[in-house]
């Protein structure tokens, strides 16, 4: 079984961003720590578990800007066997459609049975690449899954959707995007970290697909800061009465 994980390397979610003087972008300096996308970690763990249960290999595919190898080695230390890294500054900042086309083209040559990725990247929050790659390859897709079982070439996936749980059945090859709760990603152990350094990482300059930029950022801002109201102190009755009065009479939300 060939299992492909699509990995985006993103700024750590604890990053405190600065905005440049022109207000056109955040400052991309060396203080930013680049990590595996938090949701991609669930995709990696699931891929490794499928390999452990059914055999095969796990191959990662990443489009990057020269900040990615450390995180890909971490994925390899978790159990990813091989990686493909397309380093191209123009591609990495292009439209999500160009990213999806480059990924689909690369993935096609890997002859995948299963493609896994995170439900969204925590930086751009597009939630685009998984279903778009499925469409480009004409594979079925189930997004935001919290459970996945594979038996005899058929997958059963469950997800939370708008207050209900949906269960899907589909034939492989297929694409899945992982939500938190799918599994508990493992911590790499030292022998695996050493081994990961030797695993093959195929670096390329492009995927041979068109690079298009039709969506352009004009400006960035910090969201308007919410002004804190006053703290309410006193006895429990006093506090609760003041709050209920405020919600009912001032805010009119009760």
């Amino acid at each position: 079984m060939n299992i492909v994980v699509l990995l985006k390397i993103v700024p750590d979610t604890e990053t405190r961003f600065q905005i440049n003087n022109e207000g056109t972008d955040v400052v991309w300096d060396d203080t930013i720590e680049w990590v595996l996308g938090p949701y991609d970690e669930y995709a990696i763990e699931e891929a490794i578990r499928i390999k452990e249960a059914h055999g095969g290999k796990v191959i990662s595919v990443t489009i990057g800007r020269g900040k990615e190898e450390k995180s890909i080695r971490k994925a390899m230390a978790m159990g990813v066997d091989e990686g493909v890294l397309i380093e191209n500054d123009e591609l990495v900042t292009s439209d999500p459609t160009s990213i999806a086309k480059a990924l689909a083209e690369t993935v096609k040559s890997l002859n995948p049975d299963i493609i896994l990725t995170g439900r969204m990247a925590t930086d751009s929050s597009d939630s685009f690449v998984g279903p778009a790659v499925a469409e480009l390859l004409n594979f079925p897709v189930v997004t935001e899954i919290s459970s996945l079982e594979i038996a005899d070439g058929v997958a059963t996936a469950i997800r939370d959707a708008s207050g209900r749980k949906e269960k899907f059945e589909l034939k492989l090859p297929a694409v899945f995007t992982a939500d938190k709760g799918l599994n508990e990603p493992r911590y790499p152990k030292l022998p695996m970290i050493m081994k990961a350094k030797q695993k093959p990482l195929d670096k390329k300059g492009d995927a041979g697909t068109p690079i298009i930029k039709n969506v352009n950022q004009l400006k960035v801002e910090f969201p308007a800061k919410k002004e804190a109201g006053s703290k309410i102190t006193g006895t429990v009755d006093e506090m609760v009465n003041q709050l209920v009065d405020g919600l009912a009479n001032k805010e009119k939300v009760l």
């Binding site: 439209d95 999500p96 459609t97 999806a100 929050s125 597009d126 939630s127 685009f128 690449v129 998984g130 279903p131 778009a132 499925a134 469409e135 480009l136 897709v141 189930v142 997004t143 935001e144 298009i212 039709n214 969506v215």
Partner: peptide, 18 residues
């Protein structure tokens, strides 16, 4: 979120998400 990317590819359109 599941359907829109597929429609984007089918229509050769540009996505503006969320």
């Amino acid at each position: 979120r599941e359907i829109a990317p597929q429609v984007t590819i089918k229509l050769d359109a540009n996505p503006v998400s969320d």
